[in-house]
Design a protein around this nucleic acid. Structure first.
Length: 417
RNA sequence: GUGAGUGUAGCUCAGCUGGCAGAGCACCGGAUUGUGGCUCCGGUGGUCGAGGGUUCAAAUCCCUUCACUCACCCCA
């Protein structure tokens, strides 16, 4: 086969697709309870949107975007969205909400694209479910988002580790950054090769080096450099999380790779996911709306890695209840007509009903019923048709009895319990 | 971009120092005229990832290449 799928792209069949949809359905339900409205935005944007917001130096913008030139005269460069936040902020400003009605909460759900080397839990097209809140600078908002994630976790029956940190604001971050830079230069000879690179590009990243763990742990911490307002904000968030019963740890090494984050940042991980174990990440980005040409409105948000969450679900083997499944077996043309009508009736109960191929033998159809995991087989042939009845077979118990057509729905309805 | 591992039937894999390509599962049929699973019998199914080389002979050895997987980087 030569027309195979692209590297890092995946086909999700049956159960896999189902798990992903299930996670999305639960998240959507939660959004309703948190009064968060939906936003649908394009998959394609001008490249400048990401250059300005995500940051030129970030790996995402500098080497992971799928870009191409449009066919217009100007030759506009377009990019498939590598993340959701910039597009949402753009739409928010474009709708004039930053001026007319700044306090807004949105969620989005859909595919993102990054051209990275794929590995477990990381794909070139991946699905994110994200929430963005605008116009709220108060710590209660930060805490509420984390509580929201904890609610989803509980609803899905999973265990997560929450880690939070504060990166400070434009007032206090420069001092921290400078201290980190000094530290890096002082210990330059002891740093790994990647860290030499990090020192140049993004000193904050020194903190999550996995090689020189001791060196990273001894490095200056942003929490020690917070200004008075940032310190109060962070303490407030911590207090609210405690009060709400969210279990978390403060981890001074949680930094985000994107330029726009400030103050509260967080990362939520799940064990047994392999190396790519971050299922949710986010933080506050108070300057971003302004950077993209809007009013100075604060913002905060997070994104859920949907397939990572789905992987965690599969690993936890969280069972889901499903409707009893009925295989409808018809023998002959007249019976098939009756079965078509019957299927509709049973589905309305509701039951999962699969009408099997009416051209195959009874034996073949029963075999098929077993294969698809049906709980019951309803058999209707010429004899049954004449008596206005069906054979109701319990495939688990291997028992079978004749039931009149009039009573079938009631019988199977009782089986739903 | 870097490193490691793996490519043999639809799936999981065996195949030793080179000598007739195999097993289990799955699929189809039969044993059973309209009764699944269990059992028994039979059957379909192969570019041994691809290309080149060594050899009387290559799935096996050598070279090249491609794909997949995991990890690094980075990130959801």
């Amino acid at each position: 086969m030569e027309l195979t799928r692209l590297k890092g792209f995946q086909d999700l069949l049956g159960p896999q697709a189902r798990t992903l949809s299930h996670v999305e359905e639960r998240a959507r339900l939660l959004m309703e309870r948190y009064a968060v409205g939906e936003i649908r935005i394009p998959l394609l944007e001008r490249i400048e949107l990401y250059q300005r917001s995500t940051g030129e130096t970030s790996d995402i913008v500098s080497k992971q975007m799928y870009t191409f030139t449009d066919r217009d005269e100007a030759g506009t460069t377009l990019a498939l969205r590598p993340e959701g936040t910039p597009g949402v902020v753009r739409a928010y400003i474009e709708a004039g909400l930053d001026r007319s009605d700044p306090e807004q909460r949105f969620f989005y759900s859909g595919p993102m694209f990054r051209r990275e080397r794929p590995q477990k839990g990381r794909y070139r097209q991946f699905y994110q479910f994200g929430v963005e809140v605008f116009g709220r600078a108060d710590p209660a908002c930060d805490a509420e988002l984390l509580v929201m994630i904890d609610d989803l976790r509980r609803d899905l029956g999973l265990e997560f580790q929450f880690e939070i940190n504060s990166l400070g604001c434009p007032k206090c971050r420069p001092a921290f950054r400078a201290a980190l830079l000094d530290y890096g230069r002082l210990h330059f000879m002891e740093l790994c090769r990647d860290c030499h690179e990090r020192l140049e590009r993004n000193p904050l990243r020194l903190l999550d080096c996995k090689i020189d763990v001791k060196l990273a742990e001894a490095a200056p911490k942003s929490l020690d450099y917070l200004c008075e307002e940032c310190r109060k904000h962070f303490a407030s968030v911590v207090g609210m999380l405690d009060a709400a019963g969210v279990r978390f740890v403060v981890n001074a090494r949680i930094v985000r790779g994107l330029d726009y984050y400030m103050r509260t940042t967080f990362e939520v991980t799940s064990t047994n996911l392999g190396a790519q174990n971050a299922v949710v990440a986010g933080g506050r980005y108070d300057g971003l709306v302004e950077v993209l040409g809007g009013a100075p409105v604060p913002g905060i948000g997070f994104a859920i890695g949907m397939e990572r969450l789905a992987l965690a679900m599969e690993a936890a083997r969280t069972p889901r209840e499903t409707l009893p499944r009925v295989a409808l077996i018809a023998l002959g043309e007249a019976a098939a007509r009756k079965a078509t009508e019957l299927a509709r009736e049973l589905r309305a109960l509701p039951l999962q009903v699969e009408l099997l191929s009416t051209e195959r033998s009874l034996k073949a159809q029963l075999k098929r019923a077993d294969k698809i995991g049906a709980n019951y087989a309803v058999i209707i042939g010429p004899d049954e048709l004449a008596r206005a009845a069906v054979q109701l077979r319990d495939l688990g118990a291997s028992s079978q009895r004749e039931v009149s057509l009039a009573k079938l729905a009631a019988e199977l309805g009782a089986a739903r319990q």
